[in-house]
Computed example of a mutant assay.
Amino acid sequence: MLVQRILTALILAPLFVWAVFALPADYFAYLLLLFVAVGGWEFARLIKINQPLYRALVAGGIVGCALVAARHTQNLQTVLIASVIWWGFNLVWVISYPAKVQSWYGSGIVRVMSGVMLLAPMWVALINLHQGYGSEYFLLLIFLIWGADSGAYFIGKALGKHKLAPRVSPGKSIEGAIGGVIFSVIVMLIFLQYQQASVDSYAGYLLLAVVVSGVSILGDLFESLFKRVSNIKDSGNILPGHGGVLDRIDSLTAAAPFFLLGLNLL
């Protein structure tokens, strides 16, 4: 499994970085939309929709909502703020689990709308980030999330004693979460040094790194809620050693809207 994970990462990571810098903006947006479509297909399984036709309809509906939201660029801030508010509710569901499950899983319509709110704002945020701020800021977001994941893993393994959300994801620890935040802050510091940013701007950007790393963990935990209710280990198996696409972008679903909104406010 470890060898598969490493080989998959070694193949896909350089290709993705190339796509970020080399592909025209429109083509890159469609590439990201492909991830949304696959993520929607996988999410349908997490909400216990197993018939291929209905799963395709869910995925297509999510893609359609993302396209509609992207066409109304004048309402970008509204989309981002709506996503931030929605993630606030998700935090409540994570903290309260297993209570209040019916609030976010009892209705089929609510479950499908969760897929829309999970993936559509992420795509809108990512394409606007790529087109509005450039490839470097897009990769900054990716590295912030990777930093949070790596810090949480290594610090959690070494020092983790206090469970972060034991009923949702027993492997995560408070120490690991703090380590993830620290790693993300270090990534942001390196970026600010590279950009030769003014010292006056450091506080805002470092606060943004803290927020993004924190909500990236929330994104992971929120997917874990659906996995637990559906009794599914991975969202899919399309990526050898890594599970499904949704397993790889769960942190990004939460982090992307927060990151772009934060940049717009700085």
Rank of each mutant, 00 (worst) to 15 (best):
P170W: 04
E136Y: 06
F191M: 03
N50F: 13
Q77F: 14
V38P: 08
L2I: 15
V84G: 00
S169A: 09
S96N: 11
A203D: 08
V68A: 07
G132A: 01
G60M: 11
D149P: 00
Q193M: 13
Y153C: 02
Q131F: 02
V124N: 06
I217A: 10
R71L: 13
L53I: 04
T8M: 06
M122I: 03
K163V: 13
V210E: 04
I249G: 09
A59E: 01
I81G: 05
R111L: 07
F258T: 03
L31N: 06
G60S: 13
N75Q: 14
L15M: 15
F21S: 01
V199H: 04
M188P: 01
S173C: 05
V3A: 14
M188R: 05
L265H: 14
V229E: 07
I95R: 13
D220F: 14
W104I: 09
L208T: 03
V63L: 02
A148N: 09
P166W: 01
S184Q: 01
S135P: 01
G88L: 01
L129G: 01
P121R: 05
S251H: 02
G204R: 05
G88A: 06
F35A: 15
A255E: 07
A209E: 10
N128R: 03
E136D: 10
P14S: 09
G179L: 00
N50H: 15
I6F: 13
K100C: 08
A148V: 05
G176I: 00
V199E: 02
V212R: 11
F138W: 08
W18H: 11
R55F: 08
A120M: 02
G40A: 12
G262D: 09
I232F: 14
M113S: 14
L23P: 00
G244S: 11
G176H: 03
V124F: 04
S103Y: 15
W93I: 14
L12D: 02
Q4G: 12
G147P: 00
S184M: 00
F21T: 00
V215G: 07
I47L: 07
L246S: 08
F43Q: 04
V116I: 15
E42H: 12
L32R: 12
R71H: 12
R71D: 11
I95H: 07
L15K: 07
W87K: 08
Y30H: 13
G39W: 03
A37G: 15
K161Y: 07
A203C: 05
L31H: 06
S216G: 09
G147T: 03
W123N: 01
V20C: 08
S135H: 12
Y137P: 09
F89G: 13
I109T: 10
G160W: 10
W41T: 02
E223G: 11
V199S: 10
S216Y: 08
S201D: 11
